[in-house]
Computed example of a mutant assay.
Amino acid sequence: MSDDVKPRIVSCPSCGGDSVFAPSNQWRPFCSERCRHIDLGAWASESFRVEASPPAEGQDLEQ
């Protein structure tokens, strides 16, 4: 890899700030350990959910 290649900057999924998306950023895609922990906490508390309706009675769950 050449030294003149600019690192890719992405938006942090937690705070929206700039985050370096490269092996040098150990928390990528997050900008910091704090943002990484905030996101993990949201998953653990089930704040991130996919809306779905319950299956109709008699409908198999596996298809």
Score class of each variant (00 low, 15 high):
P13Y: 11
E57H: 15
E62I: 10
S19I: 04
W27E: 02
R49P: 04
E57K: 14
I9S: 10
L61W: 10
W27P: 03
L61A: 12
V5D: 12
A52W: 12
P29M: 01
G41W: 09
A56P: 04
G41Q: 00
A42G: 14
S47E: 01
A44M: 07
D60N: 15
F30N: 15
P55Y: 11
A52Q: 15
H37M: 13
I9F: 05
A44N: 07
R36T: 08
V10K: 06
P7I: 00
A44G: 08
E33C: 13
C35Y: 05
F21E: 01
W27R: 02
P23Q: 00
K6H: 11
R36W: 12
P55R: 11
Q59W: 06
P23N: 02
R8H: 05
W27S: 10
E51D: 02
G58P: 05
D18E: 15
C12M: 14
W27L: 04
E33Q: 12
P13D: 00
V50C: 14
P23C: 02
W43R: 15
C35V: 09
P7V: 03
R8N: 03
A52N: 13
A22Q: 11
S19N: 12
R34P: 00
R36F: 14
S32H: 02
P55T: 06
F48C: 02
A22V: 07
C31E: 01
F30D: 01
V20R: 14
W27G: 04
V50F: 12
S19T: 12
G17T: 10
F30C: 06
S32G: 06
L61R: 13
V20S: 10
P7F: 00
M1T: 06
L40N: 11
R36Q: 02
A42N: 12
S11G: 07
F30G: 13
C35D: 08
K6I: 15
G58E: 01
M1F: 07
A22W: 14
G16K: 09
V50A: 13
S11L: 12
S32I: 01
Q59V: 06
L61H: 08
A52Y: 10
E33A: 07
P23K: 03
R28Q: 03
E62D: 11
S11W: 13
K6A: 14
S53V: 08
A56Q: 05
L40M: 12
E57P: 08
S11E: 12
S47R: 06
E57M: 09
P13S: 10
D39L: 01
G17F: 10
D18Q: 09
Q26G: 13
S2M: 09
G58Q: 08
A56K: 07
S14P: 08
V10F: 00
D39C: 06
A44S: 14
